[in-house]
């Protein structure tokens, strides 16, 4: 009797999670895709628009704002990669010096505890042309200083990227630090005895050893960028004009401002495809990694 009981219970306990997965994730994704082919506008309408099946997608690919969003996505991914680079450099230095490691890590990481909305508000305030850093620099004597990035189409995304790097650098530092500490102490000692120069040691030993950490960081970063919404809203409100839109911003805008569910759904589906395109390498990599580990264990 007891055995039957314990056979049932774990399966019963999994039901809520399975229902949620089936409804809120799998079902909802299907639902979103479905809506994108219907005549839904402000309210759901479940008739599929057979006459013009790809209507929303055609519209999407001709929408300059979508193009801006995609361009910004790529630009932001490349720009925010600075956070990984800085994170790694800082992790190496913090790990090497040891002095004040805890304090430095605490300081570098605190922005992560701040919401994107608050972060965006603070950075927007610092970018304020009249009262912010620009004014400060001019008073210091840099007459031509220009820190009014958010007001110009060409520089607005740079402003957002600075805030994102500030926000995320500590996260990558923490991951990199964990990676560095996972390297066997004796390898550092062996290199010391061999008289390997730090440059050679890092480029030929440490960085290749951490390649999985780097890839994880890169994928987490790109997934984070795809979802970027709050900070853009808080810093630029998508502007000037629509120059700082992102895919996530586009979807919310299509749904909440334009009130077009079908259109928003088609863009959301594209977001999902982008996510999977980034995600797929990670899955393959994890598989490959576990296989290699199994091989090592043999």
């Amino acid at each position: 009797m007891a055995i039957r009981y314990s056979w049932m219970s774990p399966r019963l306990a999994l039901i809520p999670a399975m229902v949620i997965t089936a409804v809120a994730f799998v079902g909802a994704i299907g639902w979103t895709i479905y809506i994108s082919f219907t005549k839904s506008r402000r309210f759901p309408n479940y008739d599929i628009y057979w006459e013009n099946f790809w209507r929303q997608y055609k519209r999407l690919f001709n929408d300059p704002n979508w193009e801006t969003s995609i361009n910004n996505l790529i630009f932001m991914t490349i720009g925010s990669a600075l956070a990984i680079l800085f994170g790694f450099i800082l992790a190496v230095l913090v790990n090497k010096e040891k002095t004040g490691e805890g304090v430095f890590r605490t300081i570098y990481l605190y922005p992560l505890a701040v919401s994107f909305i608050v972060a965006g508000i603070v950075w927007r305030w610092m970018f304020n042309p009249v009262l912010g850093i620009e004014n400060f620099l001019i008073e210091l004597g840099f007459e031509n200083a220009s820190f009014n990035w958010l007001a110009h189409k060409d520089t607005a995304m740079w402003g957002v990227i600075i805030a994102i790097v500030w926000h995320g650098m500590g996260f990558y530092l923490a991951l990199m630090l964990a990676g560095l500490k996972s390297i066997n102490d004796e390898i550092w000692n062996a290199a010391k005895l061999d008289g390997i120069s730090p440059w050679k040691f890092y480029t030929e030993i440490v960085i290749p050893m951490l390649k999985f950490t780097f890839l994880t960081c890169a994928i987490l970063l790109s997934l984070g960028v795809v979802k970027t919404y709050d900070i853009v809203l808080a810093m630029t409100g998508g502007g000037p004009g629509t120059s700082s839109w992102t895919p996530a911003y586009f979807v919310v805008n299509a749904y909440a401002t334009r009130g077009n569910m079908g259109y928003a759904s088609s863009a959301a589906f594209m977001m999902l495809l982008i996510t999977f395109a980034i995600f797929l390498p990670l899955v393959l990599l994890t598989r490959w990694q576990t296989k290699r580990k199994e091989k090592e264990a043999v």
Partner: peptide, 24 residues
């Protein structure tokens, strides 16, 4: 298999399932 599905779900952007969740 279920873990694998959860793993993928953990990375689905909110916007992708937002509208159905509103309707629900």
């Amino acid at each position: 298999s279920f873990l694998f599905v959860l793993f993928i779900c953990a990375f689905v952007p909110f916007q992708v399932i937002m509208i159905p969740l509103v309707l629900i």
